[in-house]
Nucleic acid binder design. Structure first.
Lengths: 336, 336
DNA sequence: TAAAAGTACGAAAACGATTAAGTAACAAAA
DNA sequence: TTTTGTTACTTAATCGTTTTCGTACTTTTA
C-alpha cells in the first residue's frame, strides 16, 4: 500500500505538503500541487480510511439496522427496495454502508449503539426492526444522527409512507366500484398498522359505510398461512364481504389461494386488494390492485436528510417526511 | 468516547498494560487484569476500530459486491437470501459487512479494488455481477481473499448451486410424469446458464429424448415481459410442447400469464416448471414445481470459507463448493 | 552467595493521516 | 533601510491502538 510518505519521498517534499496538496489547501504552490497529484495518481495512491477516520473523526460510513425474522430485512422486498435506493444516494455523496451487527446471541456482543461507535458510524438508518426494543431505543436516543423508515419518534428524522392517504385511496376506489361490504385484514400492532386502521375507520365514516366488527380482523404481514386462515374465517361469515383488503401483496397471494381453493373466482365472486406494490403484484393473475409505495423516493429522501444531518446538524430541520403511494389499478376488483 | 488512556488513568497503570490486559496477554498480573477489565466495563469502554485497524492492519470488515440492474442485488430474492445467510455467519465470527460502492458514474470514484483497499476490507464476496467486467476481474485477480457465488474462476474460492444436477433432476421428473415434448427457455449467456444448458442436452440424450431446436429458446432471467413473448412463440409452434422449463420462478409467473391469457389451463393443457424456489413459487396457484436452491447453506459455506481464507490462508484449500438444490413438487406439472 | 531465570510492568515507536504553529525567502510598504 | 506581509513550505503533535524492548524486582538454581 502506497502511503503519503511514499509520495513525499518521491516528490521530495514533506508528508504535510502532500496531504495539503491532495486536500487542495491554499498554502501549497500550484506547480507542487500538480506534481504531487500526478505522482499520487501514478503510484496508485488512495487514502487509508482508518488513519483518516482516526485523525479526523469522520468515517464516511453509515450504519444500516435492519432486523427481521431473516436477521436482516434483506429478503423483505419493500425494505430491500428502500435500502437499495438509500444506498445509491449515500454512495453518490461518498459514504459507505455497513450493517450493524444484529446477531443477538453472541456472548460479549456490543449493543447497536456500541457497535456504531466502535465502527465510528456517522449516522444510522433504522428500518424493519421492533421499535420497542431497548437497544433500538438506546440508539434512537443517542446523539447519533438517525433516520427511521416507517416509524415516528419525536425529535428524530423519519421517512414514512403515507399510509393514511393510501388506505383512504384504496377504500374510496373500492367504494367507487360499488362495493359496500368491505373486510380489512390488518397487520400486527405497529405504528404503520395503527395509522392504516385509523384511516380506515375515518374513511368508512366519511363514506357513510357501516362495517360490521367481524369484517375487521387481526392479520399478519407477509404471512401466507395465517392469512389463509383469516381469509377462510371471513368467507365463512353468514354475510361475507364482497371485497377484502389484505395487509400486503404477499399475504394477498396467500388469501388468493384460500379463495381459489373454495372454487370462488377473483374478482367476480370476491374482490381483493393488496398493499406495497412489490413486483409480484403485477405478475400474478389477476393483476393485483394495490398501493405502490414509492420506495425509490423514500430511500433517496432518507439518505439526503441523514447526510444533511451529518454535515450540517445545526441547519437541518428535523422533520417527518411523508411519501405518497400510488393506487395501481389491477384486475382484482370488479364493478358491483 | 472513553479510550484506553482513560482506563489507564483510572487504574493507575500504563496504556500498554491496559491493552495487554484487555487482549489477555500473559505478562500482566491476574489481579491487575481483573481490575482493568472491570473498570473498562464500568466506564463503557469499546475499542476504536479505526485505531486498531491502522495499527494491526486488520479491519474485521468484509466487502460485498452485488451489482444488478437495481445497483445492489438487494432486490434479487435469490441473492438477497444468500447474502442474508452470509451476513449471519460472518457476524458470528466478529466480522462486519460493508458494501463496495458501485456507483459507476461518479467522477473520481475508486475501482472496486481500490475501494476495498481504502476501507481495508479483508475479503470480498462477489455475486450477481457481470463477471467479465474489467474491474471485477481486477478484484478477482488481486491478492484479496475472494469468494464468488455462482461463478467459477480458476484458483478462486466459489460456492455454486448445482445447476447440473438441478436441471437433470427437473428434466427427469418431467420425463417421469410422461412428458416427451419439453421446451426450455434458458437465461442469458452466463456460466450458470451454460451449465444448465449442457446438463439439459446431456440429460435429453441419456433419456433418449429428441427435442427439436425450436423448443430451446433464448430467454432472460426475471424478465416477465420478455418471457411472455418467448412463451407465446413456443405456444405458436405447429407442434407445441407439453411442458416448458422457465429460467426462474419469476419469469415462470410471466409465462403463466401468457398461458392463462390464451385460455389454456396449467397443468392440464400445458405443464410448467421454474427454478430457484423463492417464496413466490409456493404462493402462486397452481403451486410451482421448481428447484429450490439452498441459499442458507450457500451463504454459510461462503462465509466460513472466506473467513478461513482470511485467517489461515496457507492451510485453506481453494475449492469450488457445489450445493445441491432440491426438487419441490408443486402442482404445475401433470401426468401424461 | 552470585548468577540465571522469571514476572509484571512501563517507555516509546509505529500505523497513516491532518493540522496548528513555526520558519525561511522574498516582495512590498514605511 | 527597516518593517510588514505574503508565499511556500517543514516540524511536530495528535488521533487510539499494539508491540517491541527495557527495567526493576523477585525467585530459582548452581
Amino acid at each position: 500500500m502506497v502511503s503519503m510518505k511514499d509520495i513525499a519521498l518521491a516528490c521530495d517534499v514533506s508528508v504535510a505538503t502532500v496531504s495539503k496538496a491532495l486536500n487542495n489547501h491554499k498554502d501549497v504552490g500550484e506547480d507542487t500541487k500538480v506534481r504531487i497529484r500526478e505522482t499520487a495518481k501514478e503510484m496508485g495512491y488512495f487514502p487509508n480510511s482508518s488513519a483518516r477516520a482516526l485523525r479526523t473523526n469522520r468515517s464516511y460510513n453509515i450504519g444500516v439496522l435492519f432486523v427481521d425474522e431473516a436477521q436482516s430485512g434483506l429478503t423483505h422486498d419493500y425494505f430491500a427496495s428502500v435500502l437499495d435506493s438509500f444506498k445509491v444516494t449515500v454512495e453518490k455523496h461518498g459514504y459507505d454502508l455497513t450493517f450493524i451487527n444484529c446477531n443477538k446471541d453472541n456472548k460479549n456482543r456490543m449493543s447497536y449503539l456500541e457497535h456504531s461507535r466502535y465502527r465510528g458510524l456517522e449516522g444510522v438508518i433504522i428500518a424493519c426492526v421492533p421499535f420497542d426494543d431497548l437497544e433500538v431505543l438506546d440508539l434512537v436516543n443517542s446523539d447519533l444522527p438517525v433516520v427511521t423508515i416507517d416509524h415516528l419518534f419525536d425529535n428524530r428524522m423519519a421517512v414514512i409512507s403515507d399510509n393514511v392517504k393510501g388506505i383512504s385511496d384504496l377504500l374510496r376506489y373500492i367504494y367507487k366500484q360499488g362495493h359496500r361490504k368491505i373486510a380489512y385484514i390488518h397487520g400486527q400492532n405497529t405504528s404503520v398498522s395503527r395509522n392504516r386502521l385509523v384511516s380506515f375507520y375515518k374513511t368508512v365514516e366519511e363514506l357513510g359505510l357501516s362495517i360490521p366488527d367481524e369484517y375487521i380482523v387481526d392479520g399478519k404481514y407477509r404471512e401466507v398461512k395465517h392469512t389463509q386462515i383469516m381469509t377462510n374465517q371471513i368467507l365463512d361469515l353468514q354475510d361475507p364481504p364482497t371485497c377484502i383488503i389484505f395487509p400486503d401483496d404477499l399475504s394477498a397471494v396467500g388469501g388468493m389461494n384460500a379463495i381459489n381453493a373454495r372454487g370462488l373466482k377473483i374478482p367476480e365472486d370476491i374482490s381483493i386488494v393488496g398493499y406495497d406494490g412489490i413486483s409480484i403484484a403485477s405478475r400474478i393473475e389477476p393483476k393485483l390492485t394495490t398501493i405502490r409505495q414509492d420506495t425509490k423516493l423514500m430511500g433517496r429522501r432518507a439518505a439526503e436528510k441523514l447526510i444533511s444531518l451529518i454535515e450540517k446538524p445545526k441547519s437541518t430541520l428535523i422533520e417527518h417526511i411523508v411519501i405518497e403511494g400510488k393506487l395501481i389499478e389491477g384486475k382484482s376488483v370488479c364493478k358491483r
